[in-house]
Design a protein around this nucleic acid. Structure first.
Length: 570
RNA sequence: CGGGGUGUAGCUCAGGUGGCAGAGCGUUGGCUUUGGGAGCCAAAGGCCGCAGGUUCAAGUCCUGCCACCCCGACCA
């Protein structure tokens, strides 16, 4: 490709509203352009990267025995009503009507449609198992799109679905996909971590996420470097700690004005937060009060609360509600003299605490030196505590590490959640009708591009791994008005194409510095610079990843680069 | 959906107390230059997010709306 004729436009300035490095560099490097919030166009070089990622995924999916299909973007509402998701999916679903007033949605995922496809052809156990997949655009009207391709409202996804006769066979399909995902992320040169994930309210059987550790992700991941345990933080169980051993001090009621937060109370009394019991009043389903008690230095993980309560319809009580229910203020809520309809849960973190500070539902007062058994009694213990760094690993007890993670893949053993309501049945060898056991497996293709940039960049720009680079080699002619240099550049460009190297020839009438800056920004793994040294029969080869540069004979340079590229792609 | 921020040239931004619409980069033409976003000269380029209002006069003040970004909530 000759750059002078190529539709590729980089920017010298950082884009004004891009924060995440991947978002900034993909826009600055001219790979994508924003059209609306969470909606991006791909330019020709952007498409080149996208296709490479897609093809790596496609190849490994094919290798696993999955078969590619292409479902529709425009989905009729009827299918979604069969599973109840037309109403359950909520406002995240983009919906529209046709000219006759019939309802449609833009597919956010395709369990319904694929199940419809399979049920219309599969009748017998002899036709199973089967795995189908597609690479296609998805639409989700996210409450908050952000960070460029990391969370878009329109994005490209590989979604696969497995269909099996029984759970044993389904587990096999699931394991098959797990291995395929491992290979895919290795080939993409993405350092992912496979973590156990929440099976969700739907009642799936097993679920794993493939995440990259980056600040620009939405998941919290806990992992153990000792035993290899890794899980989404929301499902990591925290046990009761050891009982504290301390002599019990007398109980005192202390005047503590203006201490509506743990920080203020802690500094007012000069007591560390972990010696305070924090009480949080939640309102469940609009009117049921639930009191959660947790150690003052810990936070509630609302995902755990949701799993405990079996509903996501809960929120912290407002100031007025606290007053109406308990005649006290925020910061002075405690487990004493509660009305009988209150449900009280003690987080494990409060177990065995001694000489603690605890509120008594009287504004501006706290108990100090309170002890369980003597001054208050525990009730039901639960685990709703947010996992933090150094919490014990549930497998081996070593300290866990907690990081933010970006979810690139999610595999899910679904069971009969979709096959049952949609009557996707098969006949077993005894002639009995049974629901197909399903699994679903997603990879965020466009999100992978962002993840690659997050993992491979420096302050000058992107450093694409060779297998996904838009071009493998950039040829830079320093002085375009020097005929000798130009001839060598042309010759090497033609030769590179003959060798099957994906090369871009920067033949633009620009200064050398301009071309170097673009080369760094756009992230080509290799660069050949044709400059003054052509008089000595030499050109310079540069490696974007290592920063190494060395002279090579004009005749041998392309061959040398070809070897390096092939090595990278192995 | 709550909180914060930003909308002025293609891009990045400046435009106290209301008084002629600005810069740098980019673009076009010309000359010079060629190993890290070159220099000089000239030119083009604007619904100041939209709609109302106040005023002799609004990019600037007031009201409403819209869009985008960030934090939070949410996230098969």
């Amino acid at each position: 490709m000759r750059w002078s004729r190529y539709f590729w436009h980089t920017s010298k300035e950082d884009p004004a509203d891009a924060e995440a490095p991947s978002h900034r560099l993909l826009i600055k490097g001219g790979f994508i352009k924003q059209v609306s919030s969470g909606i991006y166009e791909f330019t020709p070089p952007g498409v080149r990267v996208l296709r490479k990622v897609e093809n790596i995924v496609r190849k490994e999916m094919d290798r696993s025995g999955a078969q590619e299909v292409l479902l529709t973007v425009l989905n009729p509402a009827e299918l979604w009503k069969e599973t109840g998701r037309w109403d359950l999916y909520g406002r995240e679903l983009f919906t529209l009507k046709d000219r006759n007033g019939r309802d449609y949605c833009l597919g956010p995922t395709h369990e319904e449609e694929i199940t419809d496809l399979v049920r219309s052809f599969v009748n017998s156990y002899r036709q199973l198992p089967i795995i189908l997949y597609q690479i296609q655009v998805k639409f989700r009207d996210e409450k908050r799109s952000r960070f460029g391709l990391i969370r878009g409202r329109e994005f490209i996804m590989k979604d696969a679905y497995s269909f099996d006769t029984d759970e044993m066979s389904a587990m096999f399909s699931y394991e098959n996909m797990k291995f395929a995902y491992d290979r895919i992320f290795k080939k993409l040169r993405l350092k992912t971590l496979m973590v156990e994930a929440s099976v969700g309210a739907i009642g799936g059987i097993s679920s794993h996420e493939f995440v990259v550790l980056t600040d620009y992700g939405e998941a919290r991941v806990a992992y153990c470097e000792t035993c290899g345990y890794a899980a989404n933080a929301e499902i990591v169980k925290l046990p009761k700690p050891q009982e504290e051993v301390e002599e019990e001090k007398p109980l005192q009621k202390v005047h503590t004005p203006n201490t509506d937060t743990i920080e203020k109370l802690s500094s007012y009394l000069n007591v560390p937060p972990q010696k305070i019991i924090k009480a949080l009043l939640y309102i469940v389903e609009g009117n049921r009060p639930f009191l959660f008690l947790i150690r003052g230095d810990r936070n509630i993980d609302e995902n755990k609360v949701e799993a405990l309560l079996g509903t996501d319809n809960f929120r912290l009580a407002q100031e007025e509600e606290i007053w109406q229910l308990l005649r006290t203020k925020k910061g002075f809520v405690g487990p004493f003299n509660l009305p009988s309809h209150f449900k009280v849960y003690w987080d494990n973190s409060t177990y065995g605490i001694k000489n603690t500070v605890i509120a008594l539902n009287e504004p501006d007062y706290h108990y100090v030196g309170a002890n369980p058994g003597r001054d208050f009694s525990y009730g039901e213990f639960v685990d709703v505590c947010q996992v933090e760094d150094k919490d014990p690993c549930p497998k081996c007890g070593s300290p866990l590490k907690v990081s933010k993670g970006l979810e690139l893949g999610h595999i899910f053993l679904l069971g009969t959640r979709y096959s049952q309501p949609m009557r996707a049945y098969y006949r077993d060898p005894q002639g009995e009708e049974k629901p197909i056991i399903m699994g679903c497996y997603g990879i965020g293709i466009s999100r992978c591009i962002s993840a690659l940039v997050e993992q491979c960049h420096d302050d000058k720009g992107i450093k694409w791994p060779t297998p996904v680079a838009p071009f493998e080699l950039d040829l830079i002619c320093i002085n375009t008005s020097d005929q000798e240099q130009k001839d060598v550049a042309e010759k090497l460009y033609t030769l590179a194409l003959e060798y099957g190297i994906e090369a871009i020839y920067d033949d633009r009438e620009e200064s050398p510095g301009f071309k170097f800056a673009d080369a760094d920004l756009c992230g080509f793994p290799y660069r050949i610079v044709i400059g003054k040294k052509v008089k000595e029969g030499k050109v310079e080869i540069q490696n974007r990843h290592t920063g190494e540069r060395w002279d090579a004979d004009i005749e041998k340079a392309i061959q040398e680069v070809k070897v390096l590229i092939e090595e990278d792609k192995k």
